[in-house]
């Protein structure tokens, strides 16, 4: 049974990463670009639901969620390049394991939000407050994504823990 780390480490992507000296640094920069797109978009949507942003309808801010999807896609792609370049840095890294778990939590929360909260919110007038359950979901979204950023940023610090 091959792990995803082995698979990426032996992939075409890995050989490109060894051959192109700047690919890792460029990917890191693009990972920050994706992060900013994701967080910026979620700030607009979640802060509207939380009531920090006022005077605009939920439906009009929800258009920005597409930029979060783009940002996330950029970061999955660049993230795969990181693992392909240096699988051992991630496989046993507790910061990376926490990061993946938190992304899963964020994903479940986003799914809940779209299936259970989105419909009621879509009909809200400009200044109407969101239901409490939607506010909890929006607050969880921002908190979890900030924790994802922290885990990512701490990856190099915890790289050698557990790696032996």
């Amino acid at each position: 049974m091959h792990s995803i780390y082995q698979f990426l480490g032996e992939s075409w992507l890995s050989r490109q990463a060894q051959a192109i000296p700047d690919l890792f640094a460029i990917s890191e920069s693009l990972h920050f670009v994706g992060l900013s797109l994701l967080l910026g978009s979620l700030l607009v949507v979640d802060l509207r639901v939380l009531g920090v942003i006022r005077g605009v309808s939920y439906a009009s801010v929800m258009v920005f969620i597409w930029l979060a999807v783009v940002g996330f896609a950029i970061n999955v792609a660049t993230g795969a390049i990181f693992i392909a370049t240096e699988p051992s840095l991630y496989e046993t890294n507790p910061a990376f394991q926490w990061k993946l778990a938190l992304i899963a939590v964020a994903g479940v929360n986003a799914g809940w939000f779209m299936l259970r909260e989105h419909k009621a919110l879509a009909d809200l007038p400009d200044d109407a407050p969101a239901p409490l359950s939607a506010k909890w979901s929006a607050g969880l979204s921002l908190s979890v994504w900030v924790l994802v950023i922290l885990c990512g940023r701490l990856l190099p610090t915890f790289a050698d823990v557990g790696g032996g």
């Binding site: 900013s36 607009v44 920005f64 950023i149 922290l150 990512g152 940023r153």
Partner: peptide, 21 residues
């Protein structure tokens, strides 16, 4: 330094993200 870089990464996402929106 790692702790400061954490703050720096979150702040970057907020500032650049908000400006991009």
């Amino acid at each position: 330094a790692p702790a400061l870089l954490c703050f720096h990464a979150v702040g970057m996402g907020i500032v650049v993200g908000a400006i991009w929106m």
